[in-house]
Design a protein around this nucleic acid. Structure first.
Lengths: 136, 136
DNA sequence: TCATTTATGAAACTCTGTTGCAATAGTAAA
DNA sequence: TTTACTATTGCAACAGAGTTTCATAAATGA
């Protein structure tokens, strides 16, 4: 989908900062951190603007947070099922120990797990670490 | 096991900082962050000492890193199978969205996942979010 | 085009985590 | 017990991640 349409569909104004950041997310297949995005941007947006852009994307369900064991948070585009009400809640991510990139494996479902009694699951995230296709 | 014995078994000197931090890990059933530990300590150890203590515990396999979606890293005691060579590599953690605590579910194994061809898994971490027994 | 609302930039700040170095405490052996 | 060696600690300084406030600028709907 076109970036300006994605923004307006999610009730976000079409600003140059958002279009630029969204374009970067669309360009990469793996999860990006704030500093990844900052370096990739041509125009010099303020650090704070980038943080706020990421937060607005998170709020509206355009991107989701990717957990890996690196210091800082990473984000990746949601698949179509995500919305601001309800993030797609069964993510599998793969982090390559060689290149350090984290990819979403959208086609793979997390198998259900039997929790101890009294525990109620609402969301689950599986992070698999190893060597990715490009590095093996 | 007694704290001083745990330290010497893992080739770490018995210092007051390490005994104090290890005592805190033994006291709580859920994963702790650096700041959790700092607040909990009676005696005023230097921030850096606490960081280094956590790192030495990680190195020696006394604690492992717990991933959740919070800003800062959290750590929890390893089960007995861990060693400095080989961390137990199939962790399931449960994060409660009410109290915010992350527990290790040591009895639960992560089901195997079929990866796309070319991907090689060496480790996997499953984070389940929801409501814990104490909060439900 | 105008008024309103939302987004941006700048500065200042907090929190997390690291590094280098000198002083101190543990440990093993004499 | 004392010594000598090595590991650990505290301190200072730093780098990076992330947030808040507020005045200015840009987007949108009328």
């Amino acid at each position: 989908m076109e970036a300006p349409l994605i923004l307006s569909n999610h009730d976000l104004r079409n600003t140059s900062a958002r279009l630029a950041v969204l374009g970067i997310f669309q360009k990469y297949t793996y999860a990006l951190s704030h500093s990844n995005i900052e370096k990739e941007l041509q125009k010099d947006f303020d650090r704070v603007t980038i943080y706020r852009t990421i937060h607005s994307f998170l709020d509206k369900g355009i991107v989701h947070k990717v957990m890996d064991d690196s210091e800082s948070a990473k984000y990746a585009l949601c698949v179509d099922e995500c919305s601001s009400d309800h993030h797609h809640d069964n993510h599998v991510h793969f982090k390559c120990s060689k290149c350090g990139n984290s990819e979403c494996l959208n086609n793979i479902q997390i198998p259900l797990t039997n929790l101890p009694s009294g525990y109620i699951a609402t969301e689950s995230n599986l992070l698999i670490e190893g060597v990715c296709k490009a590095c093996s």
